[in-house]
Amino acid sequence: MLVAALWVAGMLAYQLPGPGWVRGVLMAVWAGFALTTAVAVGRARVGRWPGAVFLLALVATGVWWLLLTPRQDRVWADDVAQRLKVVSFDGQHVVLDNVRNFTWRTDDDHDARWQRRGYDLDQLRSADLILSYWMGPTIAHTLVSFGFADGRQLVFSLEIRKERGESFSALGGFFRKFEMTLVAAEETDIVRVRSNVRGEDVYIYRLQGMTGEQLKGLFVSYLGEARKLDAAPAFYNTLTSNCTTIVYELAKQIAPGLPLDYRLLASGYFAEYARDLGVLTPGVDFATLKARGRITDRARAAGDDPRFSQLIRQGVPGVDAEVQP
């Protein structure tokens, strides 16, 4: 009953339209009713009507939940205004539309650029796991950056698709509050805005142990996700469809035996999960990987230097090792 009551309260808090005070009043009324009913059930003194009303509220909320549908046509925040599109892909060469390449001065002051880019997947040379800590050591945003032989980097990031003026809520993510989007961006945009503008603490880990075909397979998996989200919107879910679980789901397509782990949810420890799987630089203890992988200070020192991607990787273990075809 407690879980059911909290679920109804969450739907009232995050999905009920209208002024905040109306939601507050309805939540208080529901909380009082649910608590009274739960106590009565515990004492085996619940009457027919309170139980029936409680059950009716659950059914009505379930119908409400099912009727919620994700959309593509809201007034989106600038940084998620465009959908990533796979213009063409012949198995080797891919053309992407709406690759993000913003210049950020503050969160609210930026030059918006969405660009078309072409990539040769035979030139893929590396993949890096990037963790950006914004809420203590337990929670981090997870990104994957692919490196090419010509020195370019392309970062994929699954994010909530915020409406203009909206902000992220981990709790709201349980109640279909947000759609999700896949962003492909330059590191000078998506990494720099986190380290240099938002003040997040950012770490890079070189992924090892993949053949060229496996590396290409992981990239192609992101293309599949882009096509899926371009064709039909989907809800972000804090538990099952977030920035870390998508990396796990995509990686499972090339390594089906990946085990489930609590660190898929406690994303701040995802790098340790990757270490335990043996996909980080071998022969280096994790404390060293983490210390040398912390790029926050190097990113801030690099500023708008065009060599940003090279400068932030100085000293990161394994960055000199290329994936063999």
Rank of each mutant, 00 (worst) to 15 (best):
L289P: 11
L96W: 11
L260R: 15
A149G: 05
F308E: 04
I204V: 10
P325Y: 06
L158F: 03
T281C: 06
V29H: 06
A185K: 12
R161S: 13
G147V: 07
G257K: 06
R23M: 00
D78K: 08
M210F: 15
E200K: 14
R71D: 11
A149I: 07
W30C: 13
F168P: 02
K290T: 04
W30F: 04
E163H: 03
F219D: 01
K216D: 04
G268I: 02
V319Y: 01
S195W: 02
V22G: 02
F308K: 01
A302D: 10
V87S: 01
A271E: 04
L260M: 15
A251V: 06
N196I: 12
K177Q: 14
H110Y: 13
D73R: 05
S241M: 07
V25T: 05
H110C: 13
R307G: 11
Y133A: 07
Y14L: 10
A321K: 10
P256V: 13
R113G: 14
D128C: 03
Y133G: 08
D90M: 08
K162T: 10
V59L: 09
V202Q: 03
D79H: 02
M135F: 14
N196A: 14
R176M: 04
M27I: 15
Q324M: 08
R198D: 01
A127F: 06
L229F: 05
R300W: 03
R176H: 03
M180K: 14
L277I: 03
R48H: 15
I295W: 12
Q208F: 00
A287S: 15
F308D: 12
L67T: 12
L121K: 11
E163G: 12
I204D: 10
L129T: 10
W114C: 10
A140W: 05
A31C: 07
I312Y: 07
R176W: 00
W76N: 00
S195T: 05
D90S: 07
S88A: 12
D111G: 02
D108H: 09
L66I: 15
R313Y: 12
P282A: 01
G24P: 05
L121S: 11
T181Q: 03
L129C: 10
N237W: 09
L260P: 00
A234E: 05
V94Y: 02
